[in-house]
């Protein structure tokens, strides 16, 4: 569905994406994962033909640089935040984009219902919440039933509930034979939606892995930092040691190195033993060791 060969995008002397190659088959979902500045959005904008670039990109076999309009007719795009005429009513926006996508007839109720915003057709865009706007952008992206969805950090501006709901909705949609290319810096989204992950760092591909390996790669060597009352720490240490963990005290809590697939196990064990945990965080080994040094 998408083929990117040796994509390089520079802004002046800064290389936002360097020699990126990727392929996405029909029905497959690929995540572009990385921190801010990793090059995720740049790659997506190049795939959409919005930026000039070196290399070649084809969508559905059509070169985006030479036949961008027809290539884009195969894409439904959802941006990080829907920016459009705010005083437009929802039905007007849907109708406008349906026309631009060559969709002759739109069942507005079904379109809005499909993305979980029924009865919102008469509202102005500015009256919608952030989550509703994203759902409207998704409804617009799905007009004409494109075989490819391209999503650029679509949950970045949403609260926890909105994020979970949208990810669940996208999960249902991606299971309908559509290809999905999406950018995210959230591991939970990646594991929920992707089959493969392109791990990016500073505009370069660090690794391309199946999602199960992504979890292992990401989680290997994580350290769970448990904040708990001082009197219960000794008991907790003993309990965790008894279950094969190697906890250490760091003054305000306990550091527990955890494998990728067992990050919540210490929490469950402590809960079962009725040992209260005030807070917790997941650290990289480097951050954990830095914390130890600072404390020392």
């Amino acid at each position: 569905m998408i083929r990117v060969d040796h994509l390089t995008k520079k802004f002046g002397s800064f290389t936002a994406a360097g020699d990126i190659s990727l392929a996405l088959a029909r029905g497959e979902s690929l995540a572009l994962w990385g921190s801010n500045g990793a090059g995720k959005t740049t790659i997506i904008r190049c795939v959409l033909g919005l930026l000039s670039f070196e290399g070649t990109i084809s969508v559905g076999g059509r070169d985006i640089a030479r036949d961008g309009k027809r290539a884009r007719s195969l894409i439904g795009y959802v941006p990080q935040e829907l920016a459009f005429y705010d005083d437009l009513r929802v039905w007007e926006a849907v109708t406008l984009f349906a026309r631009l996508k060559g969709v002759a007839r739109v069942d507005l109720d079904a379109t809005l219902d499909h993305v979980g915003i029924p009865d919102q057709g008469g509202k102005r865009i500015r009256e919608l919440s952030g989550g509703m706007k994203q759902r409207l952008a998704l409804a617009i992206a799905l007009l004409g039933d494109p075989p490819l969805l391209v999503l650029d950090e679509v949950t970045a501006s949403l609260d926890v509930c909105g994020r979970a709901e949208l990810v669940a909705l996208l999960g249902r949609l991606s299971g309908q034979g559509r290809s999905l290319l999406f950018a995210s810096h959230r591991a939970d989204e990646v594991t929920s939606l992707a089959q493969r992950v392109l791990m990016l760092e500073k505009g370069r591909v660090n690794a391309e892995v199946p999602v199960n390996q992504f979890v292992a790669k990401l989680g290997a060597g994580s350290v769970l930092h448990l904040h708990m009352p001082a009197p219960s720490r000794a008991l907790a240490m003993e309990l965790l040691r008894g279950h094969g963990f190697a906890p250490t005290l760091n003054g305000v809590g306990i550091l527990v190195p955890v494998p990728a697939t067992q990050k919540a196990v210490p929490l469950r064990l402590l809960a079962e033993a009725r040992l209260s945990v005030d807070d917790f965080e997941l650290l990289s080994p480097r951050d954990a060791s830095l914390g130890q040094e600072n404390h020392a």
């Binding site: 070649t56 084809s58 076999g61 059509r62 007719s73 195969l74 026309r99 631009l100 060559g102 075989p147």
Partner: peptide
């Protein structure tokens, strides 16, 4: 692989509205 060869092998049917239709839609807006 050249872009043309790629297009022939993987081409997915794509329909985009004509230029006049899009211009009039945008003009009306």
């Amino acid at each position: 692989m050249s872009a043309t060869a790629l297009e022939t092998r993987e081409a997915v049917e794509a329909h985009a509205p004509g230029m006049i239709s899009n211009v009039l839609t945008l003009a009306w807006r």
